[in-house]
Design a protein around this nucleic acid. Structure first.
Lengths: 154, 154
DNA sequence: TATCATGCAATATATGATGTTACATGAAAC
DNA sequence: GTTTCATGTAACATCATATATTGCATGATA
């Protein structure tokens, strides 16, 4: 089962944006993330609509953070991505006529619903600012400096 | 993100097996589940190794439950399937050099780990017997009778 | 007006689950 | 014993879909 890395990717991009002094182009981000600029734009589209980032065309354009990092939780980012499916487990049939399958689905859904609530609550409790703090702590601990180009070069 | 329906499918099959009087062939199950006999055998392989079901070759052969339903939890079945990935969310990079990505991964993993614990505990608390009880309650409530062939005909 | 950057649709590629075929093994029926 | 039935498994085919790419339109700056 292939896993969806969009949330991970977007958070990564956002934190790098937060570190940058000016706007960063899709191309620069794409190079750093080893992917295509269009993929970056697709990822960011939801965040732009949600007002978390701002994009500018033309010379000197690119992407920039539009909100205080402390005001955006992982849950917000997740929602801005369209609240993608959290679980890899699914049902064989969504609306089964078979009563056995209904019972199975009900049991699984019950557990999944609770886990989903827990997970989203956790996401809601973590802000981008908190991630940034953690990142800076790691930077101090490692003694390394960082910038988008050099860190993602290797 | 495509979802893995193996757990759902196996549970469905197991409960039907429990209702059956004698061994059920892969072909019969496959017809009921609208899939291929080989797929059924693949699903059941882990359960056979775990000792939850028994298979017999030749005339009158097929699959049968080998354990008391009360002694098998959803967690056991999940493990017998090889403990497949629970979450659709993953990391962009598993062992990133980038400290930003490390911080992101750590935050996500933290939340996911707790959700996983909750989910597996829930699975551990539900036995096949409980599912069977629920199924019979549904059958009474609906007034319908059931058997493998007729229920899955349409 | 030439260049740079996003916006977006359409298409291509890659990956992995699911489905299928083929054949070997073993058990029961005849 | 030989025929039939069923599982066991590997190899292969298909299909779904996430990801990547291409192409072109739009708008902003030099």
């Amino acid at each position: 089962m292939k896993r969806d890395s969009r949330l991970s990717g977007v958070l990564h991009v956002l934190l790098h944006l937060a570190e940058a002094s000016g706007p960063v182009t899709s191309e620069a981000m794409a190079k750093a993330m080893q992917t295509n600029p269009v993929v970056i734009r697709r990822l960011m589209a939801g965040l732009r609509e949600a007002g978390f980032v701002h994009s500018e065309k033309g010379h000197g354009g690119g992407w920039a953070i539009a909100r205080d990092l402390a005001s955006v939780s992982l849950r917000d980012v997740y929602d801005a991505l369209g609240a993608p499916e959290l679980f890899a487990l699914g049902h064989r049939t969504e609306a089964p006529g078979c009563l056995v399958e209904q019972a199975v689905n009900a049991a699984l859904d019950d557990a999944l619903r609770d886990a989903e609530t827990l997970l989203l609550d956790r996401f809601g409790a973590v802000t981008l600012a908190a991630l940034s703090v953690d990142f800076h702590a790691r930077m101090v601990a490692s003694g390394k400096s960082i910038d988008l180009e050099t860190v993602h070069a290797g």
